[in-house]
Amino acid sequence: MSTPVLETENLVKVYGKGATRFDALKGLTFEIHEGESVAIVGKSGSGKSTLMHLLALLDEPTSGVVALGGEPVTALKPKKVSQLRNESFGFVFQQFFLNPNQTVLENITLPLKIAGMGKSERNRRGMEVLEQLDMADKAKNKATNLSGGQKQRACIARALVNRPAVLFADEPTGNLDTVTSEIVEDILFGLHRDHGITLVVVTHDEDLAAKCQRRLMMQDGEIVAEEHGATGVHA
């Protein structure tokens, strides 16, 4: 088997000290391979987001190792870690965090702007992704004038625009009605299926989790079970 895109070893995260000490993650070891779709499932407060933040290099573990493409990242300088995030990851959050004053195109090309890409190249790549998500006609709209589903599609476009190795989604459908949730799920799994994108989805939505190839069940900071095989509809 190839080197895993992401792997962890004995990952521990402790919040607070002394009386307020809280062990959010209690030593997790697992691998995520290229092209996989993995769901991190569990009740609220079980440590899903904490785990995702560590995987996505947004936070540092109390102890343990996260390795990206076989390279441990714990020792890297903050600036290098920022650059890795910019180049390797895409993020979709429960909330949209779109800048209401900017156009959809400006919003979704933000990662490229941060990467230091020129404006015309940025816009070209942005339009490409918007077309892929059937949002090209909304490119010049202000982000405020979009429906909820369109906003989340814009967020997905923003996550994809830098052609990431891994797409992280934290409760991507948490804020959407059932119909739009379906659409967004279809998009995410379509990308996974057609473009081989590695997908890491944090959710407590059983339906969404069921569509992933692998499910890590979390409870109180530990992975209590692991399921394989997409059980959901794979249209």
Binding site: A56, L58, P78, K79, S82, Q83, L84, R85, N86, E87, F91, F97, N99, L110, P111, I114, A115
Partner: peptide
Amino acid sequence: TREIGLMKAMGMSSGK
């Protein structure tokens, strides 16, 4: 705050 957080999550360095 959110916008700053987003930019940093997307890899904007503290210096920038």
